[in-house]
Amino acid sequence: MHWTNRSSGPSVGAVVTASAVRSTVGQKMLMAVSGIVLVLFLVAHMAGNLKVFVGAESFDHYAHWLRTIGAPLLPDSGYLWIQRTVLTAALVAHVWAATSLALRARAARPVRYAHRRPVQGSYAARTMRWGGVIILLFAVFHVLDLTTGHLNPVGDRAHPYANVVADFAPERWYVTLFYTLAVLAVGLHLWHGVFSAVRTLGQRTAVGERRARLAASAVAVGLCAGYLSVPFAVMSGLVG
């Protein structure tokens, strides 16, 4: 290795906070924070979903209550639109940073190895990018299916319970299959994502590494189990 003396010595002064988000570390932090916002939403969404096991009335009542949160201070669905705005912003930030970093990574190795062996990276870590694309496509389908009702066989916005039951009916097995694959993709994504986010935000001890792994596993397994319980309960006739 050789030393090249290009700089004429350090000079104090430049403001760097504006450029932080353009650095690879800054973009990773943006991904971590926006990812955590999205995970918090997933936890709340799953808790709401589980109301399906209490009964049609409870589930529908919950869905209607979401529109009246903050009333009378907020207009009808006011809170929902605030949440949708925050989630969209988080999603855009997450996808933008991921795309930027992925393009950068691709450019960082213009000549590929003739012989390449994966050494240690987990399946979850290696599939973050394409897994993310699958999850994004599913999210679009999911909103058109169970939020707007355009792709739902019932599509009755007043009775979401009926929409869910119709959606996961045994003859629409392909919807259940897509849903299952997407939820598993989310689980894999978070298994690496949560662990990675914690380190990106400054986790730096061996004990912390183990705790972060454990937390990531708990989030991934918990969310998968919670989300998958609904379609399988409908399929098996437990909910109907």
Binding site: L101, A105, A125, S196, R199, G202, T205
Partner: peptide, 27 residues
């Protein structure tokens, strides 16, 4: 490129530099 915390680096590092150093840098 940027770090995605896959750990390939530390697996081949001849000196076994631990990944926790990356957490320290982030902090």
């Amino acid at each position: 490129g940027g770090c995605t915390n896959t750990g390939e680096c530390t697996a081949v590092c001849p000196k076994g530099i631990p990944l926790e150093t990356i957490g320290q840098l982030n902090r």
